[in-house]
């Protein structure tokens, strides 16, 4: 049944693999996903521009130049020119060309993040803040629609909460091994997200992104007057700023792994499912 019959080789029958389309993503999920892509890209790049204005991160209630910073992106002038570095705690890494010192037009300049990673590409803190806050509004509205829809219509409970069988340690370990071998689910198992996926998506949607918004709001002196518990929650405004940066880094890490997984586990199928909602499933035992 599965092996193509050689006598019919000249007039191929429909492929013997049973390929079925399921509806994977609702319209709300698809639209909010792509708006989120836009918002996070703009907010990351304008955020790096804002960071460039003071590329030092502190912990505590206050933090300025004379206070101890535990993450610094800086530059040093030496005999052979400018050198960029990233310092985390007492560990200093040379990063000339990327962090601390990079090319801007024809000149090599001290600059925490390089101009090709920032919006605008030239130094303009005011404009970067405008970009950041405009897209922050869009992000928050978009996120609220996603979460309201997700809880209301059961997307989060049905598709993202791990099923009981998926939480068994043996199952999770199996998934870790499968991921490491780049073996992806087929057949009925591909109808649902695997446990690692579910946990990651929940972490991003319910922890990292809300944390991003909350630590962002904590940096606003106005919002701190409205919600005085905010700075206390994160150990101070400078701490909130540091957490904002670390959480953003975790989101970047998520996006890198997410895109890599999308490419490795069937790029066009995944991409199509996030555009028109249809996701093809090849049934097990039948070679593709």
């Amino acid at each position: 049944m599965n092996t193509p019959d050689s006598t019919h080789a000249r007039a191929p029958l429909p492929r013997p693999t049973r390929r079925r389309f399921i509806r994977r993503h609702s319209a709300t999920v698809r639209i909010t996903h792509w708006i989120n892509v836009l918002c996070l890209s703009v907010m990351l790049m304008s955020g790096l521009q804002i960071f460039n204005a003071h590329p030092r991160l502190y912990w505590g209630k206050y933090g300025a130049d004379t206070d101890h910073a535990f993450i610094v992106i800086g530059s040093r002038k030496q005999a052979d020119g400018l050198h960029g570095f990233l310092r985390i705690g007492s560990l200093s890494i040379g990063t000339t060309g990327l962090l601390g010192v990079s090319q801007e037009g024809n000149a090599v300049v001290p600059r925490a993040f390089p101009s090709w990673l920032t919006i605008p590409s030239y130094y303009d803190l005011g404009a970067a803040r405008n970009w950041h806050f405009l897209f922050a509004w869009l992000l928050v509205i978009n996120g609220a629609i996603y979460l309201a829809h997700g809880f209301w219509r059961g997307h989060i409970r049905r598709d993202l909460l791990p099923d009981r069988d998926q939480l068994a340690p043996r199952h999770v370990w199996r998934e870790v091994l499968d991921h490491a071998r780049l073996r992806f689910a087929k057949g009925d198992e591909a109808r649902r997200y695997n446990a690692l996926q579910k946990i990651t998506y929940l972490l991003v949607a319910l922890v990292l992104l809300p944390l991003m918004v909350l630590t962002g709001l904590t940096m606003s002196p106005g919002m701190d007057a409205v919600f005085p518990f905010l700075p206390d929650l994160f150990g101070g405004r400078p701490s909130a700023r540091t957490l904002h940066f670390i959480t953003a880094s975790l989101l970047v890490l998520f996006v890198v792994v997410h895109v890599l997984m999308v490419v490795l586990s069937g790029f066009w199928n995944n991409l199509r499912s996030m555009i028109d909602g249809r996701y093809a499933i090849d049934h097990s035992g039948e070679a593709r």
Binding site: A53, H54, K61, Y62, L125, R129, M219
Partner: peptide, 10 residues
């Protein structure tokens, strides 16, 4: 707390 637009606080 004095919050500078650049990101530091005192």
């Amino acid at each position: 707390r004095h919050d500078c637009v650049e990101g530091w606080s005192a």
